[in-house]
Amino acid sequence: NALPQKKTFSVGGVVENKVVSLLLVAEPEGIFAMPDPTVPESDIKALTTLCDLADRELVVNIGWAKHIPGFPSLSLADQMSLLQSGWMEILILRVVFRSLALEDKLVYAEDYIMDEEQSKLAGLLDLNNAILQLVKKYKTMGLEKEEFVVLKAIALANSDSMQIEDSEAVQRLQDVLHGALQDYEATNHPEDPRRAGKLIMTLPLLRQTAARAVQHFCSIKQDGRVPMHKLFLELLEAK
């Protein structure tokens, strides 16, 4: 059950980091939103599509978490606590990474890309603008996939749940992931010794944006006009 040794090795001349490699392999494919073509466009339809997509993404992301080196060694209760705190940050970071190639659009799924007009229609303009602020930050930095996968694992390990039983084990997980990011940057971006720190410094905005998103979807839930699946509801209630 020991955490994997942090080490660097060389594959085909490219220096890689073991933890980063594991996270790259574990990274799930995007899923499709599949909005119902028989239903006319409306705010309710957009929100229903997004909530359904989020529910399915969550299942995928729980499967992903189990592949983070060291995560399965945590107690089941601590695994739950981290996911209950960090799930929305993970969902948002995935949307952000998918959106890096586009201008002012959010790729919720390959078949569900929201521009300003669609955001307005769905009542998500403020939230989507906040997410676009993150996209802009990572675009400026030129966020790489390797950095994205480690940052996402760090966001989960660092989700600051109040219910952690074994905080030393969670700290060890954070240290392994943080070390992996530092090693990656030392090898791949020696010209910018502060790059790992710069990436970590984007996490407060991610936390803040995720909190806004949770708040927004909690009020949508209270309205009761948008159907939501059980896992999504369960995690909204955990907040």
Binding site: A26, V59, I62, P72, Q79, M80, Q84, E234
Partner: peptide
């Protein structure tokens, strides 16, 4: 934790992580 049945099930149904 009782309230979080689905998350619990999804985590528990895990086989151990695949040997990558």
């Amino acid at each position: 934790k009782e309230k979080h049945k689905i998350l619990h099930q999804l985590l528990q149904n895990s086989t151990s992580p695949v040997d990558l």
